[in-house]
Design a protein around this nucleic acid. Structure first.
Lengths: 298, 298
DNA sequence: ACTGGATCATGAATTTCTCTCAATAAAACC
DNA sequence: GGTTTTATTGAGAGAAATTCATGATCCAGT
């Protein structure tokens, strides 16, 4: 075997690179700086004596060598996580439960795949959804009613509750293609005055737009509710108002030109999602794996 | 995927552990201290919450968890070296030659398997043996006649020649079971006075025993030669004299009780083997792989 | 049971590495 | 062409693994 500088972190980097298509996105995904990845890759490339991907293309294209190592990375990751799951299940006796509390509707878009994958990999862990959309899902964790809560922004630390960053996303304004505001490059809070905000039937302070964008500016548009994302988009498309949703949840509709998306504010509205877990369980392999699955979007 | 502390070095450790059956031997194999491995394993075990092997058994026995991770390690190592070979062959264009020079007879015991494995993995590299047993194989490298030389002890650095440690071994005295000296726990140089030393037909200073054991004590026993290891053992078994050979080269005969082995000196005579390569080629993947194959004994 | 030798564990110090930071360079996008 | 994103580079900080020195443990042989 060749003594190689190839480490697990490099494999993670390669996979993230392939998944995100860019150095900076990949860096975000693995929670390091772009600089770190640049260093990593420079080292790898100098060792193999060949570039691993072409820079300056979007998305980046792997070279033959890069593609081969990427394939290796995927194989190794798969094997590794499988082995570690097995070991973890033997050690823990296989039991456990995972009661998930969610405060936002759109979260289900990415929660479902993660839960599906989880059920398959941890058949012995009881997976439940704590029903209803609690205003304070974190308190459900605190009181022992839930084992996992998805919360917005970095929450204040609470004793007995461990926090872990999940990922960040941008929430964008969704408008009909014919809406007058669709001409602008980005929307200001004032643009919402006099408009109708179409959203899920939840409290004001649970909406990213309101909490971080409209409320600080003192703007309070009319509200209209819909339960489902598609329903919201229907209303938007027919000019009944503006919505504000996570960019990824409307990706498919945007590509079809069904509606258009505009950044909220000049630099967009970025939101962070965190997981809250009981400190006593936070180290459990199945919980860590659940977090990892969410981060990977699978 | 579970965020794990599992690194390539841990996998190497596990494999070495399984191959050698002991912490300290494994440490030698991967060129670190026993302490380092102890720390490594402690960390791993605390992470997985379970011991990975039973201590105090010889050879050590892996637990279920340990065995699973060992299996993972073997898979990953195999995949990794395969991928890296492919990449290296693309990058280098696949060419190259490897002319091997050897100064000792017994070296062939472990050189053959390594060369066989090499031929299979690097079909495009011309593998040759520089014939004859040179007194100074290292000079063959210096003069560009060979690309790889096996040498004893740490040689003096020469410009243009890179050195890499291969492994260490113990050379032991081989005696007939009925030899008077067979009663002793270990042999002193003086014990050889008046005895016949049976060895390969090479110069004195190419024999570990003479160079590091007898010569320093001023003992010069009679010499008798044989070309093959089996022939030497025949002579020893029939009481014609004493031999001194690497422990591993006579393993099989010792187990059958054919002859007996005694340490040379109270703490045994340990010898180091090094590889000498042209500096210009030392970084070539195929050379590094060849070194690695030798170290692994495959 | 006791001693000797080997194997392994532990704690502090050191070395080694990776990462971050900050500034620079390059590119893309209007 | 200026402006904003995106990537590279070098230096410094911080963390982590290794080594060193020592102590504990275990097995063999008397």
């Amino acid at each position: 075997m060749i003594q190689s500088p190839l480490e697990m972190r490099h494999l993670q980097t390669l996979v993230a690179l392939a998944d995100t298509g860019s150095l900076s996105k990949a860096a975000e995904r693995v929670f390091v700086t772009q600089s770190a990845l640049s260093h990593q890759l420079k080292l790898l490339e100098s060792h193999y004596g060949s570039p691993l991907f072409e820079r300056g293309t979007k998305p980046l294209r792997f070279t033959q060598a890069g593609a081969r190592l990427l394939a290796l990375a995927r194989e190794v990751r798969e094997l590794t996580s499988e082995a570690e799951r097995e070991v973890a299940q033997w050690v823990s006796g296989g039991g456990g439960q995972l009661r998930v509390a969610v405060e936002c509707h759109t979260c289900f878009d990415w929660l479902m795949p993660a839960m599906d994958a989880f059920r398959e990999h941890w058949p012995q862990v009881e997976l439940d959804l704590v029903s209803g959309f609690q205003a304070e899902p974190i308190s459900l964790v605190e009181t022992g009613v839930a084992d996992f809560a998805v919360v917005h922004d970095r929450p204040a630390p609470r004793t007995g509750v461990a926090m872990a960053p999940l990922f960040t996303y941008e929430t964008v304004a969704i408008l009909s293609r014919h809406h007058p505001l669709a001409q602008k490059l980005w929307l200001a809070p004032e643009d919402f005055a006099g408009e109708t905000l179409i959203s899920y039937p939840v409290d004001d302070d649970m909406l990213d737009v309101v909490r971080h964008f409209l409320a600080p500016a003192g703007v309070k548009p009319k509200r209209r509710n819909a339960e489902l994302t598609v329903a919201i988009l229907q209303l938007v498309a027919s000019g009944r108002g503006i919505a504000a949703l996570p960019a990824w949840s409307v990706q498919a509709y945007l590509e079809r030109g069904y509606v258009v998306a505009k950044p909220l504010g000049e630099s967009g509205l970025r939101c962070e999602l965190y997981a809250a877990m009981p400190e006593s369980l936070a180290e459990k392999p199945y919980l860590q794996d659940f977090v990892a699955k969410i981060r990977e979007g699978a």
